[in-house]
Amino acid sequence: MHIVVCLKPAVPAAAITYDPRSGAPLRPVERVTSLRDAVALQMAFDLQCVPGTSVTALAIADERADPLLRRALCAGATRAIRVWDADGGSALDTWSAARVAGAALGVLDADLVLCGSQSDDLGDGYFPAALAAGAGCELFVRALSVVVGDHGVEAVQKIEGGWRVGSTLRLPAVVAVEPEATRLRHHAVLGRVYRAGLARAVEVWGAADVGLAVWPAPLLEEIELALPRARTRAAPAAAAKLSAKDRLKRKKAPVAEEAAPVAWDGPPDVVARQLLERIAQWLQ
């Protein structure tokens, strides 16, 4: 089985600085692996125990992704590929990056594609869906585990309310993993796998290598990276008519009676029964 793990070089949130004059946020040069992507990579290494399994780390990014890919090689990846077009690849949004990744998957002939459900920086969660649509694969999101069983590849999906859904995947499939899917393990520095990784190099592919005649144009453009601000909320019509004096009166008034809770009193067993009935009613 050939597993491809898509890694996105993410901006480390803690390294964001602000321009002292304008206050505009400034992105740092360095890039890191998102937690979910790291978990996806670890999950691929866990699956690598199955004989005949190889893991390829794939990034659609410029040279800032190289340290991430080298770390993936040292952690146990068989290959690391970076796809980039120096002429046309200056601005890729999630959709266009997924298109390039989809084209690369066609060349790599992947059985299983693992990626994080969203990145730590932009976090739009569009990549897995766009990749699956571009590559014509099945999409499995919110994955908590992926195992190779007797009946094929089985995955568990996280559903709200503590529910879990176990499914059998039809390969090839794109699986978006959740951060709690597996525990990250640190590779032993100067261990056998680490040394083998050091000997390998990151392959750099261009648009032509993945069969793309034209580098895809982005569907979204970033206009600005701005300081966070609260949303401007329109004042309700009724409140707008109030005079300043009335507004001050309202502000100084004690908490309105309608906001007061329904107070229950009585023996504990009676109150307990009442409360459980109310909870059951709310949950229906």
Partner: peptide, 13 residues
């Protein structure tokens, strides 16, 4: 974006 440390303004092209 970036854990709420910045806001990204985006527009479709």
């Amino acid at each position: 974006v970036c854990s709420g440390r910045a806001h990204q303004m985006v527009s479709p092209t």
